[in-house]
Design a protein around this nucleic acid. Sequence first.
DNA 1: TTGACAAAAAATGTATACATTTTAAATTAG
DNA 2: CTAATTTAAAATGTATACATTTTTTGTCAA
Lengths: 213, 213
Amino acid sequence: MLKKQQLYHQLKQDIQLQHWAAGQVLTQHQLARHYAVSRIVVRDAQHALMNEGWLVAHGKAGMQVPGFSAAEAEELCMLRLQLEPLALQHAVANMSYSQLGQAEDLLAYITASNSLAPYQRGELNWQFHHTLYQSCAKPHLLRLLAQLHQQVARYLGYQEQVQAYADTSAAEHAELLSLLRHGKSGLAVALLTRHIAEAGALLVQWLQKQQSA
Amino acid sequence: MLKKQQLYHQLKQDIQLQHWAAGQVLTQHQLARHYAVSRIVVRDAQHALMNEGWLVAHGKAGMQVPGFSAAEAEELCMLRLQLEPLALQHAVANMSYSQLGQAEDLLAYITASNSLAPYQRGELNWQFHHTLYQSCAKPHLLRLLAQLHQQVARYLGYQEQVQAYADTSAAEHAELLSLLRHGKSGLAVALLTRHIAEAGALLVQWLQKQQSA
DNA sequence: TTGACAAAAAATGTATACATTTTAAATTAG
DNA sequence: CTAATTTAAAATGTATACATTTTTTGTCAA
């Protein structure tokens, strides 16, 4: 595998696991030394991660590990709320049973595997949603949503409460699939909207509690 | 100025001016030779432009100049339609008169300067809209909108009919500012929605005509 | 002590050289 | 002649070396 990709994944994971603390400034030299690769590789990975919100520019030198804020989480969830129901709406018309089946497989896998790293839970959750939206045939929209989920995923390593919500989430996912399978697209979109709003509210509330404590 | 930035702008402009034809595959060597810079610089510029839709990945080697399609334009406009009214809605509460003034200056400048390159018209149009949305304090939303406008701007070098719409557009911008200045935020949001929908429909129709011809 | 200015250290930008991968071509077996 | 395999060319990935920019440090004067 390409070193660039390796470092990209490693660095992303290390940020999510808070191996690199929020607020810390990471220089190319520093990372190149630490991961034993050349600065070129670091540069590429840094830029890729910056585009996804895992790093933010820090003046003219270095990139900073971003912190967490209830405001940012709220914004991200608002964007999800604005875009995902739209994606589902456009997707239902062209959705195939094969895709529904794929989503069901994913859901089963998620439900079966207890003790997933928060790192993977976010990825699997996005895969599930992505499967449902895929047939909307709107590549830009799908790309934006992938980015959004990436950025939300950054919070999942931070929020430990996720596990508590996992059951509710799985139940709603199952219901969503059921509605889709029976062609009740209007209800499905409504449920999805509620689902995203709920998850977002939970995350934001938790962050606000953290912030005030 | 940094060579990376220079090449970024130059290459973007050359793509919009169709110096590099749609569908063409651009390699690092090719561009490095042509613009007399090292491949490193080309790589950075290519990646930046890819993130903004000016280039698309092409297998494992080279990047391709994307073509134009009514479907893509429609998708981009749909996303604008979905997100920009939201931005304005959140912005009106915190909007300052200084910002309104800034927007008025921009509008005056756009109106005054006839014979703008399509290259700059798109940029100025975004600056105007951005000024109105800025106070929404939603950095991710603003970043998405900047990206979207970038991608729409790609079409403006292609669509020559833009000039004809310029007057209508300026008039609506002026009306929008007037509504905002008088605190009629609801009407302003409605007008913005119509404004984006109109511009989008015009672009899409024109592309469909081109496509069928 | 504080402030500005200069020098040194450190960081990123850039170019060149080399390694690896990918693509294309050419050759050969069927 | 076709198809598969090998070989060469061309492209990208990566490392090192050098240039430029930025930051920091330290010095000196007010």
